[in-house]
Design a protein around this nucleic acid. Structure first.
Length: 413
DNA sequence: AATCCACAGGAAGCCCGGGAAC
DNA sequence: GTTCCCGGGCTTCCTGTGGATT
C-alpha cells in the first residue's frame, strides 16, 4: 500500500482534546469574572419572559472583554427558558462589521426570522429600503413574541451609515401590533453616542453596562477554565498560562488574544512533536499570530490602497518619519507612474489614508503645524518582525520596481 | 489681532454593477 | 425591454481649522 502524506500527521500525538473550546467563537458553559454583567443583562431581559418590553441597552468595552460572549450566553438561556414556559422570545444577532448598511441589517434580520426550511427571500439588493422595513414589521407581527435585536459593533455601523437605522429600530414598537422589540447595542467606543441624534440617544441608552478589561489574573482563570476542557491534562508546563495572560493583558486585556495565543502555542508544540507546551512556543505563536493578522490585510487591499501604503513604506524606507499627507501623495503619484496606473485625487487618497489607519496598518494623527498648515502625522505601524515590503511585493510583483533604486522616487520635486 | 498654511473632511453628484418590478 | 432601487468607488467643490508667523 502506498504511503499517504497524511498517515504520519494523522496518527501523531495530539495535545488537544477539543480544540474548539479554545476558539473565541466557542460558547463556554461558564463565563469567569462576568457574573455582574450577566446578571445585569438578564435582569433587564427577563421582562421578555413576562411578555413585557425590556429596556434598550448599550454595552461598552474594549475588544475581547466578553461583551459578545455574555450577550450570546444570556440570549441562549433566554430563548431556552422562553420555550420551556411557552413564551416566544427571538434573539437576533447582527454583526455590524460585516453587515454595515441600513438595508443589509434590515434584510439580514428579516431573513433570520424565517423558519429553517424557508429560503432567504429578501434579496441582497433591489428592494427599496422602506419595503424591507415593512416586510420585517409584517414578519415580526405574524410570528409575535418579543424580539431582542443585538447589534454587535454598533459604533462601526453608526460611523459608516449614520443613525437612521437606529431611529427606525428603536421606534419599532410603534409599528408593531402583535410583537414587541428591544435593541441591544454593543460598542467598542465609549463615546459613540456623540454621533447620535439626541432622540435616538435617549431611546437607545436607557441602560448601559460597561465591561472593564480583564486583568492578567482574570485572563489566567479564563485560560485555565478553557484548557481544562480543550487541552490534554499536564500538557501545559508551568508559566505558559501566565505568559499568555500577561501578553494579552498588555493588549488591553483582550481575552480573544489570550485564547488565540494559547491555542496557537499548543499547535506549535504539537507540530514540533513536543509532549508539552513551553514558554518558547508562546513566543513563536505570538510572532505567527501577528503575521497571520497583517499579511492577509495587505494582500487583499485594492490596488490603489496598496499603492498608497507602498508610498508610506517607501518614505519610511528612506528614513523619514512623521511625514504628512502631501508627502505621501507625491510619492504615491510617482509610484502610480512606475506601475502605469491612473492616480487618484488628493481627496480620495486622504480617505484611503484614513482607511489604512482604521485597518491598523498605519497611524495617521491629525496635527497642526501652525503656519505650516494642518495635516496628518503618518507612520506605518506594522510589527517590526515583519517585512511589509516583502509582503507587498509577493502580493503584487510589479510593485517591486517601486521599491528598487532603478527609478529613484524622490520626496520633493 | 490678523493672516495664512496645508490640509481635514462634509456634501453632492457621477458612474458602475448588481438586482427587482412592471 | 425600461425604470426603479442599493451600494461602492470616485471626483468636484467646498467650508473649517490650530497655531506659528507676521
Amino acid at each position: 500500500m502506498s504511503r499517504n502524506i497524511f498517515d504520519g500527521i494523522l496518527t501523531q500525538h495530539t495535545l488537544f482534546v477539543q480544540k474548539e473550546t479554545l476558539r473565541h467563537t466557542h460558547q463556554p458553559a461558564k463565563l469567569p469574572h462576568r457574573d455582574n454583567e450577566v446578571s445585569e443583562l438578564s435582569f433587564n431581559l427577563v421582562e421578555a419572559l413576562k411578555g413585557h418590553i425590556p429596556s434598550n441597552m448599550i454595552l461598552y468595552g474594549v475588544t475581547g472583554a466578553g461583551k459578545t460572549a455574555v450577550t450570546r450566553y444570556v440570549c441562549d438561556q433566554l430563548e431556552t427558558k422562553g420555550e420551556q414556559i411557552g413564551r416566544l422570545v427571538n434573539p437576533v444577532l447582527v454583526n455590524c462589521r460585516q453587515i454595515d448598511t441600513q438595508y443589509r441589517v434590515l434584510s439580514h434580520i428579516g431573513n433570520a426570522l424565517l423558519e429553517a426550511h424557508e429560503q432567504a427571500d429578501i434579496p441582497f439588493t433591489g428592494w427599496p429600503t422602506d419595503r424591507v422595513f415593512s416586510e420585517l414589521v409584517k414578519r415580526m407581527d405574524s410570528r409575535g413574541g418579543v424580539y431582542v435585536i443585538v447589534l454587535d459593533e454598533i459604533d462601526h455601523l453608526v460611523k459608516k451609515a449614520g443613525d437612521d437605522l437606529l431611529y427606525n429600530l428603536t421606534n419599532l414598537n410603534a409599528e408593531l401590533k402583535n410583537a414587541r422589540a428591544c435593541v441591544i447595542g454593543i460598542s467598542n467606543d465609549l463615546k459613540f453616542t456623540d454621533f447620535l441624534d439626541p432622540r435616538v440617544r435617549s431611546r437607545l441608552g436607557q441602560q448601559d453596562i460597561v465591561f472593564n478589561p480583564y486583568n492578567a489574573e482574570q485572563l489566567q482563570d479564563i485560560l485555565r477554565e478553557r484548557s481544562k476542557e480543550g487541552i490534554a491534562k499536564d500538557a501545559i508546563s508551568a508559566g505558559v498560562i501566565e505568559l499568555c495572560a500577561a501578553l494579552a493583558a498588555q493588549e488591553h486585556g483582550d481575552a480573544r488574544c489570550a485564547l488565540d495565543l494559547l491555542r496557537v502555542s499548543t499547535e506549535k508544540a504539537e507540530q514540533e512533536g513536543s509532549q508539552t507546551v513551553e514558554q518558547q512556543h508562546v513566543r513563536i505563536a505570538q510572532a505567527q499570530i501577528e503575521s497571520d493578522q497583517v499579511t492577509p490585510v495587505i494582500t487583499t487591499l485594492p490596488t490603489q490602497q496598496k499603492l498608497v501604503l507602498s508610498a508610506v513604506l517607501l518614505n519610511e524606507k528612506n528614513g523619514l518619519k512623521n511625514f504628512q499627507t502631501g508627502e505621501v501623495y507625491n510619492i504615491y503619484k510617482q509610484a502610480c507612474n512606475i506601475v502605469q496606473q491612473q492616480f487618484l485625487t488628493a481627496r480620495r487618497v486622504s480617505g484611503i489614508i484614513s482607511n489604512l489607519d482604521m485597518l491598523g496598518l498605519i497611524t495617521a494623527k491629525t496635527v497642526s503645524r501652525g503656519r505650516y498648515g494642518r495635516s496628518k502625522e503618518i507612520n506605518s505601524c506594522i510589527p517590526t518582525n515583519l517585512d511589509p515590503v516583502e509582503i507587498m511585493i509577493k502580493a503584487e510583483p510589479m510593485f517591486s520596481e517601486v521599491f528598487t533604486n532603478k527609478y529613484r522616487v524622490q520626496n520633493k520635486l
